[in-house]
């Protein structure tokens, strides 16, 4: 059987909220060491990669590897039943046809249970090669979210440049061109590999979808290398990571 209990169920709710506009039906892999999920959006431009380690759960048991095909759209509807401070338990039998979700408040006097039907999905698993990212930056997730939203009003595409002393987000649209440059000497942002600079362009529409995860973590890590998809990574406190990959835009 499989059973995983999180004391703070709103974390799981936030994760589902943060991926539901990108991916619809996904396979969640439950193994003795944790839960993971990898899925692409329908246009194959973005990919969601989630890993939650068993250590982060209050209780975790998974006797054998299970693939749980689930509609994220429907799961998001069920997550509306999770209130602030509720714990959440996910459980199912070994040959499951549904996933049971149990939410309980702190006083233990209110319990909500819902069985979500499972679906069979063709898995479309992509192998992500080992990549040495030449440019990495960690910045305030709220600031990154705000910046992407504001730039989207001006342009569909943003060019990222990460260098020794700054990170620059440049846009060019019908109304003109401009950029936001953030000095990395401030505590909020820092480059780990300062000697290299990479410039890559990305669709802001996707970045705005990724930013729905900003409430999961105060910080977001951006990783880039030449001619490689961008990685936007949020650490889920003591549980694991939620990573988004975004294919770049190229000029022919």
């Amino acid at each position: 059987m499989f059973e995983a209990k999180l004391t703070d169920g709103t974390i799981f709710k936030k994760i589902i909220e943060a991926i539901k506009d990108l991916v619809t039906d996904v396979n969640i892999d439950a193994t003795p060491t944790g839960l993971s999920l990898q899925a692409m959006d329908s246009s194959h431009v973005a990919l969601v990669n989630l890993h939650l380690g068993m250590e982060g759960f209050e209780r975790y048991r998974c006797d054998r590897n299970l693939t749980l095909g689930i509609s994220i759209t429907n799961l998001a509807k069920v997550m509306k039943l999770v209130n602030q401070n509720d714990s959440i338990t996910l459980k199912c039998e070994d040959e499951p046809t549904y996933l049971t979700i149990v939410c309980q408040n702190q006083k233990h006097d209110r319990t909500t249970q819902f069985n979500v039907n499972l679906i069979t999905l063709d898995s479309e698993h992509l192998g992500i090669p080992e990549t040495e990212y030449t440019s990495e930056i960690t910045m305030n997730s709220g600031e990154f979210s705000k910046l992407c939203k504001e730039l989207y009003a001006l342009s569909e595409t943003v060019e990222f440049e990460i260098s020794t002393t700054f990170v620059k987000f440049a846009v060019e649209g019908e109304i003109g061109s401009g950029s936001i440059k953030i000095q990395t000497s401030a505590d909020e942002a820092e480059t780990s590999r300062p000697e290299d600079t990479v410039k890559l362009s990305f669709a802001l529409r996707y970045l705005n979808l990724f930013n729905k995860a900003y409430s999961l973590s105060n910080q977001v890590k951006l990783s880039m290398a030449a001619e490689t998809p961008l990685v936007v990574e949020y650490e889920v406190e003591s549980l694991g990571t939620l990573k988004y990959y975004l294919a770049p835009k190229i000029t022919d």
């Binding site: 194959h44 192998g127 060019e172």
Partner: peptide, 14 residues
């Protein structure tokens, strides 16, 4: 604004 690539260009199918 450039052409949007897809992830299959960079990642391999399994």
């Amino acid at each position: 604004q450039g052409r949007q690539t897809t992830l299959q260009l960079f990642f391999s199918g399994e």
